[in-house]
Design a protein around this nucleic acid. Structure first.
Lengths: 291, 291
DNA sequence: AACTATGATAAAATAAATTTATATGAGTGG
DNA sequence: CCACTCATATAAATTTATTTTATCATAGTT
């Protein structure tokens, strides 16, 4: 069985047109006809019903079943491809959210040096959505991911290593800095500077908006945490960040939010199911789990 | 990419000998050499390290990684094969444990008749271990499975539909039949008739033995529940069964066991992840979930 | 009625996998 | 140390599989 046939088939199920599938793969139309015939002969059952009268192709139950398996097989092939490409490189590629960059990275770095792995590691900083996509598709070896509450990804090995509340971040001279705590619905008239879409903070922010029925203005968005902090310092707007994103040097105040049942910023170490870790990757994963 | 190459490779990783792999697949030895070369060329990395000096093959990290993916791909191919073979048959094949046969089957049958599906269904009765193997490998379309506590199978869609205690089953004239309840460690001197290995009852029985540190004699084992019941009636030994296995017509008494934290006989409806159910199968699954 | 879109079919061409035959290289027993 | 065995590699020939080219069939469209 050739996985190429399965790829043709999955595409045929998707776009339901032999000639277009042929174009997609830069082959001629009879190739697709023949490929489907091979599959139908192999499994001894019709997979696609060609309804000439209405110019419509329908996928039989058998076809749908094969398609479900074909998709897994193609995905696994792509993962193998990506993973072995990673193995060809010497460096371990770790994804981590920029929010953790300042806090975790120095701790981790010293541990890496201790194990003589500092030069074998390469970090990628990006929003958690993007990092999840990258670890899932095999572009990363290990990811440290933030999520709103526990992660639930069936194809991933997830180990939760901590969870932290979201807070309102202000300069020390701001009125909220004097408060021990604040309810989100007291912030309806405040302007926020926020992280860009793709960061879990945005999902959490939406949760607070919805639950408190408050619609604070978002005056600016940036994917860069240090820019965000500077804007908070300069009173452009107040911030919404996990408390671990804030260090003493920032000279900012994190005020906790009182809303009940609020989601927590949850940090997990994530690898793929069926991923084989090199001995070095195992050490790096251990280091991440312990910090 | 040919799945045949992946099969050769997985076998090579397993037995680490080119010639023997060739024999397994009834091909010649150079076929395996060429197949491996194709894979190594394709992924651009060495998969197997041939150590001529010690006559030993070792699998590289890349090879281990490919092997992990290959195994999933081969499994998915076999599932597709089995599932489409099932689709070629008209009858829906349902597995159920014989313990449920008497209780569930009549209820289910009347529902099936109501939907005109009675002739489209074929039941297979066997121990839960065997049924699990059959549903996992695609030989069954749907299985009703008993387990000791909740099932935990990552490749399966499991819906728990009930759980019931295990009980001690005796004829009405037996001393235990007078008791409302009994501790397992009071049964050290009783002889049991038990189901054969492969039934979850055996696992539960082992649990009670271990926890109570009691070793009752097992005088006879049978895979046939009705034979088992007859033996209990004829005082060959006392029984160990879930309470739902016992009906009024049996004229047997089920005495509950008092041991703390005891496992329950749990019934679940099980299908495979990524299995496509025909409309008929969906109805049958619904019926099973509702009874 | 001519035209277009879509898929099927057959023969030819090309590409890929397997076999046959043979080579290499490391151990092993006499 | 020589003949022998075991295990894998290599090259050419053969067989098998896939794709293309060219053409046809059918239904819908202008």
């Amino acid at each position: 069985m050739n996985t190429r046939d399965l790829e043709y088939f999955a595409k045929l199920v998707e776009i339901k047109n032999f000639s277009q599938v042929a174009d997609e793969f830069s082959v001629t139309q009879p190739t697709i006809t023949m490929s489907l015939k091979r599959l139908e002969d192999h499994f001894g059952i019709q997979l696609i019903h060609r309804d000439q009268s209405h110019g419509q192709l329908t996928v039989t139950t058998a076809g749908k079943q094969l398609n479900a398996r074909a998709k897994v097989i193609i995905e696994q092939m792509q993962l193998a491809e990506a993973e072995l490409a990673r193995t060809r490189q010497s460096k371990i590629k770790i994804g981590l959210p920029p929010i953790l960059g300042n806090n975790y990275l120095p701790q981790i770095a010293s541990e890496l040096i201790k194990h003589g792995l500092m030069n074998n590691v390469e970090t990628v900083e990006s929003g958690s959505d993007d990092l999840l996509e990258q670890i899932m598709s095999g572009k990363l070896d290990i990811a440290l991911l933030g999520s709103v509450g526990p992660m639930n990804e069936t194809n991933m090995d997830v180990t939760q290593i901590g969870s932290y509340p979201f807070t309102i971040v202000t300069p020390p001279e701001h009125r909220l800095a004097q408060c021990d705590h604040v309810a989100f619905n007291e912030l309806g008239n405040d302007a926020f500077v926020l992280l860009s879409a793709g960061f879990v903070h945005v999902k959490a922010f939406e949760w607070f908006k919805k639950e408190s029925q408050t619609e604070p203005e978002v005056i600016y968005r940036t994917p860069d945490v240090s820019i965000l902090k500077k804007m908070i310092t300069q009173h452009v707007g107040i911030g919404f960040l996990t408390n671990i994103a804030i260090t003493d040097e920032d000279n900012l105040v994190a005020t906790r939010i009182t809303d009940a049942d609020q989601p927590l910023f949850t940090i997990s170490v994530v690898t793929r199911k069926n991923q084989i870790l090199t001995p070095e990757m195992k050490i790096v994963k251990e280091i991440l789990l312990q910090n």
